[in-house]
Design a protein around this nucleic acid. Structure first.
Lengths: 335, 335
DNA sequence: TAAAATTATGAAAGCGCTTTCAAATACAAT
DNA sequence: ATTGTATTTGAAAGCGCTTTCATAATTTTA
C-alpha cells in the first residue's frame, strides 16, 4: 500500500543522477529522453514507489485532471447507474471523477458546482438538475460541460439524453394496444422538463389513438415512491374508472403498486401498470414491472466520452441513445 | 456563477493595499489583523469574487481538506445511504468528500485507495470491503481511517458498525416467536464477515430456542437480488419443509419474494420472509417487508464525526448504533 | 574537418498559496 | 522620556511539480 508520499521528484532526480526536469519529462513523456536515463529514472521511481503529488502537478500545469460530476441524489437508482457509467469510462483514463450532490435543490446545486469549480475541475458533467439556461451557458464558457438526462435547447451538442416524449409515447401505446382506453398518468414534478415531456408523450399517444385525454386522470407526483401511493389514492377517490396507470418513473410505480395492493386491486388482472426507467429493481417488483428502459449506464459512458473528447479538443456529437419498452408482467390485455 | 479563477491573493493584496501574507491571514483567521485592513481585504475579496486556488492551498499547507470515501458500489441502497450521511455531515465543514468505488473487488479497492492517497486525502472512510487487517493498519499509520459497516478486531475505536450477530438474532427470534420452527437462511458471501456474523446470529437464536439448525436450510447467496431467487429455488428443490426465510439483506429478500411469487407461494400466508437493512424500498415490497433496520444514514454521520474528531486531534469513540426490528407484513404467525 | 542545424539536458522561473522570521509598530511599565 | 514587552505586518522562503530558456552534446551538411 501507499505510504504518505514524501519522496519527491528531486529525490528521484538525485538518485538517478539526472535533473528534476528530466524526471518530469520521462514521467509525462513530453520530450524524448536518452534511453539510459529513462530507464534509470523509471527504475528509481519503481524502487522508491514514487507517487507524484497531484496538487503540485495541478498547480504547475493548471490542469486538475478531475471531472466534476453533479448528481441530484446519491441513492437514486437511475442517477447512480449513470454515475457507474461515468466511473467506468473514466477508469482507464488519467481523469478522476469528483462528485457532488445537488439534492434536487437549485441552491445546493449551485453551491455544489461552485465547490467543484473551486477544485478546478477540468470538466463538468451535470446530471439533471435545475440549472437555468443562462447559468449553463455561463459555466460552459469556463469549462467543458455536458448535461445528462436533460436536454437544453441551444445546447444539444452537449446534452446526452433520451427522447422522453417518444419513450412515454411508447409506454402509453403499449397500454392502448392492450385495449386500455382509460389510462391514468402519474407525472413527475412538472417544473422538471422530463416530467413535462413524459406527460406530453402520454397525451400524444392518447390523442393519436383517438382518446380524449382526461386531465382528471393526470396526477402530479414528485418522482418519489411515496407520491405514487398518494397518487393512486387520489385517483381512486375520484371514482372515475380507469384500467391502467402509466407512472413517469419506476419509483412512483412501486408506490402505486403498494397502494393498489392495500386496496386489493390486483395487478395486472384488475389494472395494468407501467413504469419508466427500468431500474434493476423493476424486474423484481411483484409482479415484474413493465417499463421503458433508459440506457442509464450508457448515458454515463456517453457523457464521459463527450467530455473527454471536448477536453482533447476533438469534435463529437452525442450518440443517439435508444429507449426500449420492456414488457413484463404488470400489464395485461384489458378485458 | 463562478468564473474560472484568475484573481489571486496578490491581486487582493495589491488592491487592498496590504501584503499577501495579510490577506492570507484574514482569510484563514490564523492571526489577528487590524480591523481596518481586515475590512479592506474582505471588501476586495467580495468585490473581485475571489476564489482561493485549492491546489495552491493544499500544496502550501500540506492539507487537502478532502476526505476519501471508498464505497463498494455506487447504486447499492445501503451504501448510498451511508454516503448520504457522510455528505450531510461534511456539508457544513471545510472538508469535502471524494469518492471512489471498490466494486466489491479487492484489487479495485486497493487501486481506488491508492488513487485517493495520491490525491492526498486527509482522512479515509472505508465502507465495508475486503481490506485485510494488515493493510488497514498500514493505512491507518499514514492517515486517519474509519471503517464503516465492518468491525475489525483490534481496530474497534475506528469502526462504525452495528452488531450483526445481535441484529440477526433479533430477526430470527421474531420468526421463532411467530411459531416458526423450520426457518431457512439465505446468507451473504461468507468470505464477508458481516455475512458470517448474520448467519451466526441466526444459528444462535435457533439454538437458544432449542431448535437444531439444519445446514441444509442455509444457502449462501451473494447479497444481490438474483441470488435470492436462486436460493429459494435451491431450497425448494430440497423438498425439506420450511415455513420462513431469513435473508441476510433486503436485496436477497426481494429476490426470494419473486421466486416465491413465481411458484405461487404466498407471503406471508404460506411463508414468512424477513430481510436485513431496511432499505427505503423494503417498505414498498409486496407485501411490505419485515426487516432489521440498520441506521445507515446515522452510520455515515457517525463515521464523518469520528474522522473529523481524529483530524482535530480529539479523542472519541464510535457511538453504539442500535438496530431495530421493523415488523411489517411479510411475516405472520405460523399455523 | 569546420560550420550549421538538431537534439537532449539542466537551471531557473514560476504556479498561488502558507508560514516562518524578522522588522516595525504599538502599548505598558518604570 | 526611556526601556521593555507584546502585537501587527511584510519579505521571503518554501510546497512539489511543469515548462521555458539557454547551454551542452550530438548529428548533419558542406
Amino acid at each position: 500500500m501507499t505510504t504518505k508520499d514524501n519522496v519527491t521528484i528531486s529525490d528521484i532526480a538525485q538518485k538517478a543522477g539526472v535533473s528534476a526536469s528530466t524526471v518530469s519529462r520521462v514521467l509525462r513523456g513530453t520530450t524524448k529522453v536518452a534511453e539510459a536515463k529513462r530507464e534509470a529514472v523509471l527504475g528509481v521511481v519503481a524502487e522508491l514507489n514514487y507517487q507524484p503529488n497531484v496538487f503540485a502537478q495541478s498547480l504547475a500545469s493548471g490542469q486538475s485532471m478531475a471531472i466534476g460530476v453533479l448528481t441530484q441524489n446519491f441513492g437514486s437508482p437511475f442517477y447512480d447507474a449513470i454515475i457507474q457509467g461515468v466511473v467506468r469510462a473514466l477508469n482507464r483514463t488519467d481523469y478522476f471523477p469528483i462528485f457532488a450532490d445537488g439534492q434536487w435543490q437549485p441552491d445546493t446545486e449551485i453551491e455544489a458546482i461552485r465547490t467543484m469549480m473551486r477544485r478546478q475541475v477540468d470538466g463538468l458533467i451535470v446530471l439533471g438538475g435545475f440549472l437555468m439556461v443562462e447559468e449553463i451557458e455561463q459555466l460552459a464558457k469556463d469549462t467543458p460541460l455536458v448535461m445528462v438526462a436533460r436536454n437544453v435547447t441551444g445546447f444539444e451538442e452537449n446534452c446526452v439524453c433520451i427522447d422522453n416524449v417518444q419513450a412515454s409515447y411508447l409506454a402509453t401505446q403499449h397500454l392502448i394496444e392492450f385495449g386500455h382506453r382509460s389510462i391514468a398518468h402519474i407525472s413527475g414534478r412538472l417544473d422538471h422538463p422530463d416530467a413535462r415531456d413524459r406527460r406530453q408523450g402520454y397525451i400524444l399517444a392518447l390523442e393519436e389513438a383517438g382518446i380524449e385525454p382526461n386531465p382528471e386522470l393526470i396526477i402530479e407526483g414528485n418522482f418519489r415512491r411515496q407520491s405514487g401511493v398518494l397518487a393512486v389514492e387520489m385517483l381512486l377517490l375520484k371514482r372515475i374508472p380507469f384500467s391502467a396507470i402509466f407512472a413517469a418513473n419506476d419509483q412512483m410505480a412501486y408506490g402505486a403498486r403498494l397502494a393498489l395492493y392495500r386496496r386489493g386491486i390486483r395487478v395486472p388482472e384488475d389494472l395494468s401498470l407501467v413504469g419508466f426507467d427500468d431500474e434493476p429493481a423493476a424486474a423484481f417488483m411483484i409482479p415484474p414491472l413493465t417499463t421503458v428502459r433508459q440506457p442509464s449506464i450508457e448515458l454515463g459512458l456517453e457523457a464521459a466520452r463527450i467530455i473527454l473528447a471536448r477536453l482533447a479538443g476533438e469534435a463529437t456529437s452525442p450518440a443517439n441513445l435508444k429507449v426500449e419498452l420492456v414488457v413484463r408482467e404488470s400489464t395485461a390485455i384489458h378485458r
